[in-house]
């Protein structure tokens, strides 16, 4: 790497540090307040617990992905992926605040009647959304994309494009679902376990299969170091799934937790995959 590109990456990391800290602090504080409220009034077997956990898992997944990408060398595919992740996190943050406001508006509660904990969690959602917008503006993707790209081998270029394409398909699908499709309770359909139509299910499965096929194409096109990182990621993710599933199931039977939620376990597994992959690739 040239000294100039190293300087460029140092600048980029420094610019993203403050917004990233805002997002992380916002997320941790929100998690802390929520756990605290559950300890005061245990919501055992309440379906909203699984829904809240899945939303928090998505937040964590997005923040972890943004953190990992922000520590890497700046390339065009990574700038595109980072920008998309920041937009998704902004939608998640502002969407969380919007959901709280809608629930309270439906119960005709004025702002002054909200509990202080609700006000804090509402504000922390806004902080996460604002942090993501701040990060997007600090990243300045429109400037970065104009700069000369570091030379990469043909195989690396192919894998970067496939990785970007698989990510783009997944991100577009999630954003389309988040914006365009709402369930009966007004929440995005991917955030909880409400019923969906068979037509919606077919489209969602088709998009998922396309993303899976692209990810396999990427795997078999990647160099051996990238494939090994992917193998390590799936080893960690498999370990998470094998550990969490029976523990949650037995704690549900003991009456401690609500029924196991497949999507929460999937999010945790994917977080494990991402951590294992990033660790091997960047250590």
């Amino acid at each position: 790497m040239t000294a100039r590109s190293e300087d460029r990456n140092e600048d980029h990391r420094a610019q993203l540090l403050a917004p990233l800290l805002a997002m992380i602090v916002g997320f941790l504080a929100k998690l802390g307040f929520t756990v605290n409220s559950w300890l005061i009034a245990p919501p055992s077997r309440d379906p909203r617990v699984a829904q809240t956990l899945s939303v928090y898992a998505v937040n964590l997944l997005l923040i972890a992905a943004i953190w990992t990408l922000s520590r890497r060398t700046l390339t065009r595919p990574r700038v595109i992926a980072l920008s998309a992740l920041l937009v998704m996190l902004a939608l998640a943050g502002f969407g969380g605040a919007d959901a709280i406001a809608k629930v309270l508006a439906a119960s005709n509660l004025p702002w002054s009647a909200w509990t202080w904990q609700t006000k804090v969690i509402f504000g922390l959602n806004l902080l996460i959304g604002a942090g993501a917008v701040w990060g997007f503006l600090s990243l300045r993707p429109w400037q970065v994309l104009k700069r000369a790209e570091e030379q990469v081998s043909p195989a690396t270029l192919r894998t970067q494009r496939l990785f970007g394409l698989a990510g783009l398909v997944s991100i577009l699908a999630v954003v389309a679902l988040a914006i365009g499709v709402r369930g009966a309770d007004g929440n995005p359909v991917w955030s909880n376990n409400q019923n969906v139509s068979i037509g919606f299910a077919i489209v969602a499965i088709a998009v998922w299969l396309v993303a899976m096929a692209l990810s396999w194409w990427w795997y078999f096109s990647a160099d051996e170091h990238e494939r090994r990182a992917n193998d390590v990621g799936f080893l960690v993710g498999g370990g998470v799934s094998i550990a969490v599933t029976p523990v949650w199931w037995i704690l549900w039977r003991a009456g401690v937790l609500p029924a196991p939620d497949a999507m929460v376990i999937w999010y945790l597994t994917m977080i494990g995959v991402g951590i294992g992959w990033a660790w091997y690739r960047n250590r």
Partner: peptide, 27 residues
């Protein structure tokens, strides 16, 4: 540079770095 060697071997720069530092044994 690492990127030059990566181009010649048709692998990523990260792969060259990992091999050089002994963190990845090449096939």
């Amino acid at each position: 540079s690492q990127a030059d060697l990566a181009m010649r071997l048709d692998v990523s720069r990260q792969a060259v770095n990992a091999i050089e530092t002994g963190k990845h044994d090449p096939s």
